[in-house]
Design a protein around this nucleic acid. Structure first.
Lengths: 322, 322
DNA sequence: GTGAAAGCGCTAACAC
DNA sequence: GTGTTAGCGCTTTCAC
């Protein structure tokens, strides 16, 4: 339409030098009139990138992840990248099918905020594009990893309960409390703190695979039935579990924090809504998202970026439940 | 590698008939060994679809939308579609840039759960691919629309407050309470209910542009300062606003529901966590997501699908705050 | 400065 | 049943 060749048009689109000003303008004008948009498919095929970053999360309905994704997307958008969100739903096969999209070149890189498959399997995909672990990690892996100090987070929370005078501390985990499984860093923070106080783990007070408000309610019921052997505090590892626990404990007539201190984790919006409001360990979600996506962008643009680990500190938010 | 031509390979990938069993197996074997994955870019370029559906939401951190997206993605995944989530952040230009992806053929269709630009502009994109409005609508548009009966939802909520004996009902809206703007259906449900009781709108008790927990707290403070002219009930239009309102009202010594009834909207998980727990209007989010994505899938696969409007009814969830 | 032409990986029409 | 080939829209040499 501008009476020029495709190559000149391409040069204009890609901001090449050596295009005379008048022709550039003629082309831009024609593009506007035709409402022309270059086909991403063709550009991809030609060896360019898709300008899409994939993010794997367990579930987007978990506020921790929706806020994380929110921040990642905000920054990606500023850098002309789209985000594709995948929910692994703790399903190995589903996660694998997302990693395959890297092979298909549908996405340029993957940020994994959840890991279902084992290390070797995941690492085998790194040759198709960058993979970054976000708030998850493998034992000594070459995969770039941005991680919060979960061990210290748990340690801080437990230490606070101990300093307050609690000695019978129950502990909830989203994992299975095994040596090398999920949440192992938090587990060791827990161990470290109680060991410092010369205490031992009471297996009756360990609750595994805890995630939801309903899980929290269940715990309240179990604790209520323990009679003499009740703990005097619960580290829940999740504001949602803490919230459910508080609501149900109140219904059962357990006074919080007098009879039972409850410590959350994350500092989600709901933490200030319960009565009593939840004392919790705040994770710096925005900073986590920012460092992760900046690292990804730098890899994709083959520049350097040194994550600022200083910003990734957990903090204690003291409210009423402990 | 299998010693066969590309076309035969293509036929195997696309499950064509007329491929002998032995060659098919040879090809599948080679594909496995090479860890081969067809390039989506090339397939797209060849005129196929991208197998991606875009969803525009205001913010993914709003639980209403994260649950909606969760359901849509679940069903899309079952049908071999990926989801690309866009956050418009109530930004016209951002929304426009997402609609352009339809032109670039990066996505096959768009589900709009938020509308920032005007009708003509949005409709101009329908020639590039299907657009469906989800829980939003234009006045008499040809764009397929799946919508909940917001008018009835608001009516139910207000009616309940009136039946309980409240006569001084404050009303919050996420929009601006104008005739044709956002949330106009809810506004008319409100009008309908109070008119039936022979009441009038008190402009002092109308709160516009209310969305967050903090907004709710502000309302509590304003109401507290009204002295004699306090309302005896608030229809918040959002569980988050209701939650903030309840927390702050309690701090200010306003008894809920005795002095002030509070009605939420959505039935989000947090609705049962506050004290008192929130009485609210439940939106059938899963059904909404399901009908919407099924309609989209049917359009993309050029089959027919008749949305089941029966399932899209709002219900009242009575707890303690009203 | 600009244009012609090759080729990215795939599918489908056509030939055999 | 299988192979050959054109062409999707773009970028990038290579000529001029």
């Amino acid at each position: 339409m501008a009476g020029l060749s495709v190559s000149t048009v391409s040069r204009v689109i890609n901001n090449h030098k050596y295009v005379s000003e008048d022709k550039r303008e003629a082309i831009l004008k024609a593009m506007k009139e035709l409402n022309y948009q270059p086909s991403t498919a063709a550009r991809q095929l030609r060896g360019q990138s898709s300008q899409i970053i994939g993010i794997i999360v367990p579930r987007i309905t978990n506020p921790f992840f929706s806020y994380l994704v929110d921040e990642i997307q905000r920054i990606a958008y500023q850098n002309d990248f789209q985000i594709m969100i995948f929910q692994s739903n703790e399903d190995k096969a589903k996660e694998a099918s997302f990693l395959e999209l890297l092979v298909k070149k549908q996405i340029d890189g993957i940020i994994m905020c959840a890991i279902e498959n084992d290390q070797d399997f995941v690492e085998s995909f790194t040759r198709y594009g960058p993979i970054i672990l976000c708030n998850e990690s493998f034992e000594s892996s070459s995969i770039p990893t941005i991680i919060l100090d979960q061990m210290n987070g748990a340690y801080m929370g437990i230490k606070y309960l101990l300093d307050k005078g609690c000695r019978k501390i129950a502990y909830c985990t989203g994992g299975l409390f095994d040596e090398n499984g999920k949440d192992k860093s938090r587990n060791s923070g827990f161990h470290k703190a109680i060991t410092e106080y010369g205490l031992k783990v009471n297996p009756e007070w360990i609750f595994v695979d805890q995630h939801t408000i309903d899980d929290g309610k269940q715990i309240a019921r179990k604790i209520s039935e323990m009679g003499e052997h009740r703990p005097d505090a619960v580290f829940t590892g999740s504001d949602e579990v803490a919230a459910g626990l508080i609501v149900e404990a109140k219904r059962l007539g357990i006074a919080i924090p007098e009879e039972l201190s409850v410590m959350g984790f994350d500092d989600q919006p709901l933490a200030e809504l319960t009565t009593p409001a939840i004392t919790t360990v705040k994770q710096p979600i925005q900073e986590l998202g920012r460092e992760t996506v900046n690292l990804m962008l730098s890899i994709l643009q083959s520049s350097r970026y040194e994550p600022d680990r200083e910003k990734l500190k957990m903090t204690l938010v003291i409210r009423e439940s402990a």
